[in-house]
Computed example of a mutant assay.
Amino acid sequence: MISVIVPVYNVEKYLEECLDSIQRQSYVDIEVILINDGSTDNSKEICEKYCKQDSRFLLTNQENQGLSAARNKGVEISTGEYIVFVDSDDIIKTNYLEKLMQYMAEDVDIVECIFTVKKMEFLDENIETTTIIFEGDSNKAVKFFPHHTLNVNAVTKLYRREIVEAVPYIEGVFYEDVYSGIGMLKYIRKMIKIDYVGYYYRVRLGSIMHREFSPKNLDIFTVCDKLIELYADREDLLPYVGSFLVHLATMHYHSYVKKGNPYREFYNQKLAEYVTLTKKNPDLARASRLIKLYNFCPKYYNSIVFPVYYAIWKLKNGIKEVKVDE
């Protein structure tokens, strides 16, 4: 059985569309664990309606504790051999669970698919293909992560229960997906990613990743440092974790840190620490474009070197800001 865990918090506008997409799954051996995390709108009543209609839906109400606590609670009370997380404002395709289960073999612990932020792309049945774009064990997955083919997202994945239980979500911080998404790779036997677009990820202006800077944005470094602690006993993999953290810290800086931000120097300090990790693998450091850019001029990397490089890269590749659908 698959346990589908849905944390719910003030999403009455989108919740029915999400729950309908779960209820209509072609794979029917499921339980749907709804964790109402202290909603103050009509989300609780909507959840109760689905529980009355369908015995597979189960509702637990709790005071507002945040996304991580809701996910952890869902895992705790779920009973399925496999676990899937769905955010309560997102949608999954009707064959989403069935498709992921097709690739869940005895030695596989995670199956991942592709998400889209464009609803028309999600609804376009003509683009559905299914080929494997990554397959590998723990070592290969961690080393592959800096290539950005695999995602840290909790969603878009089918997990074997033991893997989720091995790395609970850190409670009380933002960016909890980063820790668990990379942390779980330490314990897997094999992971598979397929090119199937089965998940519509709704980007809302009020989401964590689309807010102005606040000190809570510094949680990213709490999460990164905990990842370093987790992989401290794997010196072969730690440089690859460091390489991903260099990318993460760089992009986070350029997303949030504006001129005059009092934390600019702190960002630079943490970036230098992550660069140092990659140098434990000289071949990796030489192969990383960001590391080479950083070594070219560490002092002006964030203020001049990377912004110029990134602007040229976007221009060459015709990259414009992605428009998303409500």
Rank of each mutant, 00 (worst) to 15 (best):
M251L: 12
L237M: 08
I192C: 10
L290S: 01
H252V: 04
K193E: 08
G242K: 00
R24A: 13
Y103W: 13
L19A: 00
R160N: 08
Q269D: 05
F145D: 00
V197C: 09
K280M: 12
G242V: 00
S243W: 01
E171V: 04
N268E: 14
A272N: 02
T130E: 15
E63V: 11
E326F: 10
Y300V: 03
D236A: 04
W313L: 14
A311L: 13
N42K: 13
D325K: 01
V32A: 06
P282W: 07
K280N: 15
Y196R: 03
K280W: 13
E326Y: 08
Y200D: 05
I2S: 01
N217A: 07
R189Q: 15
V322M: 13
L150D: 09
N302S: 04
L271P: 04
D219H: 15
E212L: 15
E128M: 14
F115R: 13
Y50L: 01
N42H: 07
K93N: 11
A154F: 10
N64S: 12
I83W: 01
T129G: 02
I220F: 13
I208H: 14
A285N: 05
D219N: 14
G74W: 03
S3Q: 05
N151P: 04
F145A: 01
W313Q: 14
G38E: 03
D233V: 08
D29S: 12
V6E: 05
I114G: 02
N281T: 08
Y187P: 02
A141E: 08
L158I: 02
K270I: 00
D20Q: 10
G318D: 03
V32H: 05
L123D: 14
R234K: 07
Y96M: 04
I2T: 02
V257W: 00
L19V: 01
I182P: 00
V246R: 00
K299C: 00
D107E: 11
V246P: 00
K52N: 10
E16W: 08
K49G: 10
G136N: 04
V117P: 05
E212Y: 11
D87Y: 01
D124A: 06
S243A: 13
E321I: 11
E81F: 03
S68E: 04
T156A: 08
E135C: 11
K118I: 09
I110D: 06
I30N: 09
K186C: 03
N36A: 07
K316A: 06
E321N: 12
A69Q: 10
N217L: 07
E135Y: 05
K226E: 11
F213H: 05
V178I: 15
N317Y: 02
